[in-house]
Design a protein around this nucleic acid. Structure first.
Lengths: 136, 136
DNA sequence: TGATTGTCGACTAATCTAATCAAGTTTCTA
DNA sequence: TAGAAACTTGATTAGATTAGTCGACAATCA
């Protein structure tokens, strides 16, 4: 039931960008503060950009900044975007359901569904702002 | 946040053994009913045996059966035994904590801790009996 | 123009997952 | 007591995923 480093690292980057610094922060700066390898961070920031969480500027003094208010960045969404569905099994995934031959009378499915609901409920009501303010 | 097939398959086997059949069930029978590859199931049953959940009898008409009452088999424990800690990150794992250089002021840790607590609370109060009776 | 910084795509080493296989050992039953 | 049924053990493997690396390119600004 692990979170992969993609999700963890991306959230670290968002937290870094949501901090006190108001201007742009370069990949290098973010890498230093978050301890995420620079070349790997690059990939994650690009994906965060494609998903509309951050914006960038090239060239001297360029860098990244958030492109939304922290309270409009929902943690559950970020994790889904970066590492796939929150559900522990495909048969109970809302965002990418996969059928299973045993599904009909499956005694496990209701359990997995509750696990999914618990996780999704928590992560979908937590925003970047909550994290920044320690409201967790 | 996936459950691996080890956990899923092992639980299927336990559910199968906890079903109406009272006597021994051979690996072959269990494999057919649960759709778990026979050779793989073999491994999982052995591990379940080492962990004290099932017992076996060799020879003709041999097979496996539960070695505890279903209400004494806690799902959280089974999953921990078969696929490791429930916690989404090492820094919040109760059973196998791993430190992290950012841990001190980490704004994510409280979130992961809540995720862990939610999952563990649910899986540690669910027993095999609950699954068999559909009490989930 | 040249230094700085982001962008993009390909590549890779290591690990994990999900099996598979082969060679036993034990036990039952005919 | 032979022999088949059934469990036991350890080794091996193909494929996927993870986590990262690398190199060339494009934009920006002093």
């Amino acid at each position: 039931m692990k979170i992969s480093s993609r999700g963890e690292y991306a959230l670290r980057a968002l937290i870094c960008l949501g901090g006190k610094e108001t201007g742009l922060q370069s990949i290098g700066e973010i890498s230093e503060k978050t301890l995420v390898p620079l070349n790997y961070l690059e990939q994650l920031l690009l994906q965060l950009k494609r998903n509309g969480y951050v914006q960038s500027k090239r060239g001297v003094n360029g860098g990244y900044k958030l492109s939304r208010d922290p309270e409009e960045i929902v943690i559950g969404e970020v994790i889904r975007n970066l590492e796939g569905p929150l559900a522990p099994m495909g048969c109970v995934s809302v965002t990418s359901y996969e059928s299973c031959p045993l599904e009909a009378g499956c005694l496990l499915k209701p359990l997995w569904a509750r696990v999914r609901d618990n996780i999704a409920e928590l992560l979908d009501r937590t925003t970047l702002r909550d994290l920044l303010e320690g409201n967790v």
